[in-house]
Design a protein around this nucleic acid. Structure first.
Length: 481
RNA sequence: GGCGCUAUCGUCUAGGGGACUAGGACGGGGCCCUCUCAAGGCCCAAACACGGGUUCGAAUCCCGUUAGCGCUACCA
């Protein structure tokens, strides 16, 4: 058995959509599982809307996700001559015919059919033209398209995910395959390319199911055996509608920007419409490839749930060694406007990553630990200051004085917690009343990693100075009571 | 309207005639842990769209209904 050849064929008319990315992922998984070849083909035949910028972003998105292709990128626009030749061959063999109807005439026919409550189907008026008439019009330079002559027969296939799907030729239209400017229409271009590129498995979104009978008719007319078709379900927004801009972030790049890890995104996408079986959730790349089957793909559309994506990202974040996060976190920290100078960010990342769901979130916390003065006081922090009243400052001052007794070489989480417990005991304070003011002083919030770790990571001098400054700031503050 | 696809907790899903008192995960609620918040552990609430068949037995097979979605271009 020769290894399969699959393709991912985005059109560069927009960014890499999560649905497209998922389709690419399934093609990739299948190719890697079977030792097959993944061809990347950019379908740029819509000159109006295709841009190089979109192509670049799509390639970048795939690369970011770790989806590698074996051939390409190939550009469909470069095969215009073959498309045209295929259309003309069909025309010569009587499997297609010239149509001189203008857009306006067609629109009028469509409107009339709709008014009559009937389904519009092209009435083949141009099929009845005599050959002399056709020649005359062609000679006169009258623009024409080429329409495929659809046979009234059953068109069915065994879809790898849906099972048998069947259409009747009479329900389909004699569709245009070549425009009047001699460029190919999607269905022809796809079939012509898939044949030329020897594609064995067509794995694509199930919004293409209704194109498939037309394409099968083309395969038959061109005398080529059919590939295996696998139509994967769509990805919907939270409202059950096709995912679109108004649902917020739909481009892969959006998630990259929001601080989602590529491995998490890939894992999450794989689980949209496919299941490795059993209770698996976090699935490593190798495992994913090993377990992948087309039959394991769901028939039902899936709703894109960013909450679960973030949870999954948190899982990957916790599991990833801090060292691997240093570079992306540093970039974000700088973007926030904090200079990490010569600091090793790894320990700071380690302190906060278990509590984070995105890289952005990690970076925000790291930035505050680098420069506590920049932490805004949040409502919880304010509430604590009010609740403790004057004790907020006195407890903070007491802790600062005790911590100051710790020599620089003893500034470790273990020694710090020991010291702080001593402070609480000496002043008869609840541990929380000793700890929380420190947390608020250094982060502006009552939420963070354990206070001793926080202090260790902020650094002795910086921490003590900040604690003193905050203590002074609130020393005269009246309590809410 | 026509054609097609689909239907298990709010969401992602397991299941493929008896193992189902329908399992897991996210999210929600509670408890434990604890200096806070996460993480982690334990527990709770939460679904087979509806109606007919087939069968000793149906979430699972068949038919219908309903609903949702897709396509219905000289877009892809």
């Amino acid at each position: 058995m020769t290894p399969p050849r699959v393709r991912f064929a985005p059109s560069p008319t927009g960014y890499l959509h999560v649905g497209g990315a998922r389709t690419a992922l399934f093609n990739w998984l299948f190719a890697r599982l079977t030792g097959g070849t993944l061809v990347l083909r950019i379908e740029d035949t819509d000159r109006e809307r295709s841009t190089d910028e979109h192509t670049r972003v799509i390639l970048e998105g795939l690369t970011w996700l770790g989806i590698t292709w074996d051939e390409g990128p190939l550009f469909q626009g470069e095969y215009a001559a073959r498309h045209q030749a295929d259309a003309e061959r069909l025309l010569a063999e009587g499997k297609a015919y010239r149509c001189f109807c203008t857009r306006e005439e067609l629109d009028a026919q469509r409107a009339a059919a709709e008014a009559a409550g009937a389904a519009f189907r092209y009435d083949r008026r141009c099929l009845r033209l005599s050959s002399t008439e056709i020649e005359a019009r062609v000679r006169a330079g009258t623009p024409s398209t080429i329409r495929f002559l659809l046979q009234d027969e059953e068109i069915a296939w065994d879809d790898a995910v849906h099972g048998r799907i069947s259409f009747q030729g009479r329900d389909l239209d004699d569709f245009v395959i070549l425009r009047s400017d001699h460029s190919a229409i999607y269905n022809l271009a796809v079939v012509s390319d898939d044949i030329a590129m020897d594609i064995s498995h067509v794995i694509r979104g199930d919004d293409h199911i209704s194109n498939t009978p037309k394409q099968i008719a083309l395969y038959r007319a061109l005398g080529h055996p059919l590939p295996v078709f696998a139509h994967v379900p769509m990805i919907l927004g939270a409202d059950g509608k096709k995912l679109s801009k108004r649902h917020g972030a739909t481009a892969v790049g959006d998630y990259q920007e929001q601080g989602i890890l590529p491995a998490a995104m890939r894992n999450f996408l794989a689980l949209m419409g496919w299941s490795p079986g059993g209770d698996r959730e976090i699935v490593a790349e190798a495992e994913m490839i090993r377990l992948f089957t087309l039959e394991g793909i769901q028939k039902k559309a899936a709703v894109f749930d960013t909450t679960k994506l973030e949870w999954m990202n948190g899982q990957y974040l916790s599991a990833l060694p801090a060292g691997e996060l240093v570079a992306p976190v540093r970039r974000q920290v700088e973007r926030i406007g904090v200079d990490p100078a010569g600091r090793d960010l790894a320990p700071l990342i380690d302190a906060v990553k278990a509590r984070s769901r995105t890289i952005i979130h990690v970076a925000e916390q790291v930035a505050v630990r680098l420069d506590p003065a920049r932490a805004p006081l949040d409502p919880k922090g304010e509430a604590l200051i009010r609740k403790l009243g004057p004790a907020f400052s006195t407890n903070l001052e007491a802790a600062a004085s005790a911590l100051e007794q710790l020599p620089a070489d003893a500034w470790t989480a273990d020694r710090i917690v020991e010291c702080l417990k001593g402070v609480a005991e000496a002043h008869a304070l609840k541990l929380g009343d000793a700890m929380q003011p420190i947390r608020v002083a250094l982060t502006g919030s009552t939420v963070s990693e354990p206070v001793n770790e926080l202090l260790a990571v902020v650094g002795r001098q910086r921490a003590i100075e900040r604690m003193r400054a905050v203590a002074r700031r609130w020393s005269g503050a009246p309590s809410a009571a």
